[in-house]
């Protein structure tokens, strides 16, 4: 299995029990990620991005049903592992997660240096001295002066706290780091400098990233590959080049046209309508109601169709599916 992808996700599904019924937040997601790649998971609020991340790390809330499908790390299925082994062998060890709004979830009464070292103490059984040493290195790597190790979270600015949670995710040297909206709460300059840090770490260390964002421009700052989600499904998966230059799915194209650009004469145009409810999604293509290209066939659910090298779109228009384009 020497060149199996670092991570393969197959037919992943996740539902929540809610008062209104079963809500299917992740539905039939297939993804593959090779070592050293960064994958941006892009999509509008509520499309299931965080649910996907939590499924991969199995940090699900109580009302979630057990996830379905497969998660393979270098060819080995780990989603079915018993919790004890998953914790010992996968979570934080192979995959680290920076949760959405994690920088506001730091423990206010523990020095940041200790918090950053904690995963090492727990998951790598490092000695106190080793852990402290590694935490200091991680601080340097993300651009925080090491004398900040002894400070408390409230003594750090938002940008510094975000760097600290990043350091925490890197400290155990995982193969894969999952970042859920790591920069959305920050201003533009801080955002850009954190993206710079991520680019550098990716380049120097060959860490792989799954990077969740609702912002198209931010996605383009790190991604080698992009997976666009809509209403619980991945609707297009492609290289960043193909995705930004020649998006295949109608939703991708319309989304691109809805993004305001600094120097473009033509104003952006909104996508009329809004996403369907995940409690009772349409039987056919979930985008059909808003899609200007929709035709009869779209009443049936389209599968992911190949439309280039490592490029798939969930749309009946694609040649692989016998569309007329």
């Amino acid at each position: 299995m020497a060149d199996a992808p670092l991570m393969e996700i197959e037919d992943l599904g996740l539902s929540y029990a809610t008062e209104q019924g079963t809500l299917r937040a992740v539905d039939g997601v297939d993804l593959a990620l090779h070592r050293g790649e960064a994958l941006a998971v892009l999509g509008e609020s509520g499309c299931g991005k965080s649910s996907l991340a939590k499924t991969l790390l199995r940090t699900l809330p109580r009302n979630a049903y057990p996830p379905t499908g497969q998660l393979r790390l270098q060819g080995r299925e780990v989603l079915g592992l018993p919790e004890e082994r998953f914790r010992r062998e996968v979570r934080w060890v192979r995959i680290a997660l920076v949760m959405q709004a994690a920088m506001n979830a730091l423990n206010p009464v523990v020095r940041v240096g200790e918090q950053v070292a904690e995963p090492l103490r727990i998951h790598r059984r490092a000695s106190r001295r080793q852990a402290r040493q590694r935490a200091a290195e991680a601080f340097e790597e993300v651009g925080i002066p090491t004398d900040f190790l002894r400070r408390y979270p409230h003594e750090l600015s938002g940008g510094m706290r975000q760097r600290a949670v990043l350091a925490m995710a890197l400290v155990t040297e995982p193969d894969l780091v999952l970042l859920d909206e790591p920069t959305s709460a920050l201003d533009v300059l801080t955002q850009a400098s954190i993206m710079n840090v991520l680019k550098r770490i990716k380049h120097e260390r060959g860490v792989s990233f799954v990077f969740i964002t609702h912002d198209v421009a931010t996605a383009s700052e790190l991604a080698d590959r992009v997976a666009l989600m809509y209403a619980g499904q991945v609707v297009e998966a492609a290289s960043a080049r193909a995705f930004f230059d020649e998006p295949a799915h109608p939703y991708s194209r319309l989304l691109m046209a809805a993004v305001p650009r600094l120097h473009q004469e033509r104003p952006p145009s909104p996508i009329p309508g809004r996403p369907p409810s995940l409690l009772d999604p349409p039987a056919g293509c979930r985008f059909a109601e808003r899609c200007p290209w929709a035709f009869e066939r779209c009443g049936e659910p389209p599968p992911m169709a190949p439309c280039g090298e490592r490029h798939h779109a969930r749309c009946w228009l694609h040649p692989g599916l016998g569309g007329e384009r």
Binding site: L189, T190, N196, R200, S220, A240, R241, V259, L262
Partner: peptide, 26 residues
Amino acid sequence: EALLSALGDPDADNARRQREVPGGEP
């Protein structure tokens, strides 16, 4: 100027370059 160069329109090349960002904090 700093705001403008920290911001980018979506483009696959963005991932391959470091942005110019002034150091320091607000």
